[in-house]
Amino acid sequence: MIAPFFERLNKTAGLNFSPFYDAYDWGRLLEGMWISVELIACIIAVSLVIGVVGAGAQTSKSRVIRFLIAAYIEIFRNTPPIVQLLFFYFGLGAITPQVDMGGWYEPIIGSFGWAVIAIGIFGGSYNVEIFRSGIEAVPSTTTEAAESLGFSNFKIFVYITLPLAFRFCLPALTNNIISLAKTASLAYVIAVPEITYTLSSIWSDNVNVPEMMILLFAYYIILVAMIAKGMHLLEKRLALPGYGQ
């Protein structure tokens, strides 16, 4: 049903959407989309963990730790992400140990792994600031009330500060997650077979650049819309009745 339509479209109008009638290209497209989604999920997870840990470390009493966190944020926010990625993959990748795969050697961390590490660390540098701002937005009077009720510092953080801070930073977090999902396409440069890479190999095989470009744009528009929708639902779910109006 779908395949004949696109085949006819190719013959009559010259619009070659090969993945929709060619089983091999279809497989490649699905694989690319799947790896892209996987990559984005891993990157976001890494960046969130770094964000929470970093924001916590920023409240540390040690000046050295605070300086290191500040240095981390500034270095990764003020240098080109593509160079960061290349630095990690080629620079650090060259000195990481290799494992014997029975005859041939493979690096412990592959290109997918390095993309997750590099882009995750890049995104984390924004998340640290976002979480920190959220924590700062929790009124000190509210935590003081908890203190007066006998809450320990840990319980104050878990039951009062964190739930409120998370709500306060959701809008900024949504923006950063969307921007990270887009930045994940950089993994192309170290040949991670995600969507951009896959479609580019399809268009170099079939010489159908404009058509595949439309698919690529459509993929990202839909992906971003879905993430935005999901985050919006979360925001709505967590909204406090009567608060902030």
Binding site: K182, A184, S185, Y220, I221, A225
Partner: peptide
């Protein structure tokens, strides 16, 4: 606004 830089650059 919603497409990656790389994709726009390719286009």
């Amino acid at each position: 606004r919603n497409s990656p830089w790389l994709v726009i650059l390719f286009a």
